[in-house]
């Protein structure tokens, strides 16, 4: 019961782990290379959501000090700032992976990893 009530209270942690697992599953099991890359992005989104929600407090606002300087609860800005870097890393990984898929398509004429494996086996 403890775990269940913990999950209900922290539903965003639960949601982000579910997203992470969906992404990882897509990445490792789908044979379509583009879908693998989409899975990679979904997985990263799950982690980003998780990290950002660590720094979140209920009713908190962005850490910009108002002019009178009082009476506002701020969220922890550090995780959000770090995830900004994480997003940049994710974008570059995606771009690189997509360019590799284009190259693979030039050589094999398909974006399906099973078909590519089949072609390689026949070559041997």
């Amino acid at each position: 019961m403890n775990i269940i009530s913990g999950l209900i209270q922290n539903y965003f942690y639960f949601a982000s782990i579910v997203i992470f697992l969906i992404g990882t599953h897509v990445m490792l099991t789908h044979s379509n290379l583009i879908k693998k890359i989409m899975g990679m992005n979904i997985m990263e989104t799950g982690i980003f959501l998780f990290v950002v929600s660590i720094g979140y407090i209920r009713g908190g606002s962005a850490p910009i000090v108002p002019i009178d300087g009082r009476g506002v609860r701020f969220i922890n800005p550090l995780p959000s700032a770090l995830i900004l870097t994480g997003i940049v890393v994710g974008v570059s990984l995606t771009a690189f992976a997509l360019s590799l898929v284009i190259e693979l398509y030039k050589y094999y004429g398909t974006t399906d990893s099973d078909e590519i494996m089949e072609m390689r086996r026949r070559e041997r």
Binding site: M27, L93, L104, I116
Partner: peptide
Amino acid sequence: IEASFKYLILSTVGSGFILLALALIYM
């Protein structure tokens, strides 16, 4: 190209795990 793609996908899974671990430690 194929080897590089395989390496990239598996490494990304690895990086994802590392980032999640860092988040758990920071938490």
